[in-house]
Design a protein around this nucleic acid. Sequence first.
RNA 1: GGAGAGAUGGCAGAGUGGUCGAACGCGGCGGUCUUGAAAACCGUUGACCGUGUGAGCGGUCCGGGGGUUCGAAUCCCUCUCUCUCCGCCA
Length: 424
Amino acid sequence: MLNLKFIQENPELVIAKLKKKNFDASAIVLQITSLSVKKNEIQASADNFKAEMNKISKEVGLLMREGKKEEANAAKKRTSELKDSIKQLDEDFAQIDKEVFNLQVLLPNLPSDLVPEGRTPEDNMVVRSFGEIPVLPENSIPHWELAKKYDIIDFELGVKITGAGFPVYKGKGARIQRALISFFLDEARDSGYLEIQPPLMVNEDSGFGTGQLPDKEGQMYHATEDNLYLIPTAEVPVTNLYRDVIVDVKDLPIKNTAYSACFRREAGSYGKDVRGLNRLHQFDKVEIVQIAHPDNSYELLDEMVAHVAGLVEKLELPYRILRLCGGDMSFTSALTYDFEVFSAAQEKWLEVSSVSNFESFQANRLKLRFRDEATKKTVLAHTLNGSALALPRILASILENNQTPEGIRVPKVLVPYCGFEMID
RNA sequence: GGAGAGAUGGCAGAGUGGUCGAACGCGGCGGUCUUGAAAACCGUUGACCGUGUGAGCGGUCCGGGGGUUCGAAUCCCUCUCUCUCCGCCA
């Protein structure tokens, strides 16, 4: 959520910047600024009436104590009129305040100046490519067939007990999942992240805090009986740890990591994109989250990108890093780098990580602040997060890229975690 | 699931209709003392909105919402949440 004062003071800038996200904000911004003027006028007169009311109440109290009942009753007479005015003004204020808020949440985050122009994924900017695209042996097959061949992932069994998009991992399939999780968490810890094990369900306030609610309500599984949501990513609980908190500036940056299962309804997805491990309703992911000082949040974003790059390189997977264009960015992000690994048998790039700086967009919803040492005022912190990493597509490309006639070779770095070198 | 208790500032915890935004304590910050630190002592210490160049001024907030009253942390209604005991149970 953009800061209201900022919108009021920089309406043209907001409109201009959101153009890059292909979002025409002019009507909303205009409404917000004109409603805000009205809102302030209402508050000014309501505050005046309230001040008068408070004064009278105090006087009545004093007169009563002195036993001057007549005078007290005379003073009371003025109040009923004031009360009505106050009530009316408070109602008007609440109404207009809500209108402003409802408009405010419609505005996406402003893209950073680094964000390239563009509308579609084709317009994303490749900022780095790494590794050779492997040449696969004859008769190589996509990961869903490999999974069946070596009996490590059973998609049909998942359909039976739950539904499509809920695979069952078996034997070495289950073990390599566990290995990847441990590997990612250890790497994060080595980079200074504190490991968190968060709840997998969150309440409405948390959903709002990180921006899933109200707009993306349909993408989360909702346990209506208790009004809780299954998390789509550990970003939600881990970032919400700091909701309504004024953190100590000395503690910044705060670096947390968490493994969690992630649940996504993926309403609207279809076709070859959902084949095998490409898109699931439940998957595993290790997330990294930072709470940062605005002065260095972009340096920290680069640091996070470097961390993720290190992971993919250690797994010996060819990858590229994209800087997302305005049209392909999420609602809440100011700058996003996507990581894609090459899936050799499918012959396509698969997104395995998304690393973003949200600047103060989430923090404004979360009321996550720190106190500026010079001015002594509270300032919104910056929040950042990234997948480090999401498992399914990583596993898909490991399976496909490392297939040999003898079986699937496990990346060296994972062998100590797995306890085996080949899936065969 | 049954019964009861409770929700107050960063924490702990008073306050049951009128100078209460809220005592005391802890913590934090500043100072005295000290070579330095600790201890001790003194002082200070909530958030948000509006307004003003600023000092300031005004307003709101004692879990959420509503009500009674000239006046509510305090009384009434309602919702939510937490804790304790019993039952069930990984």
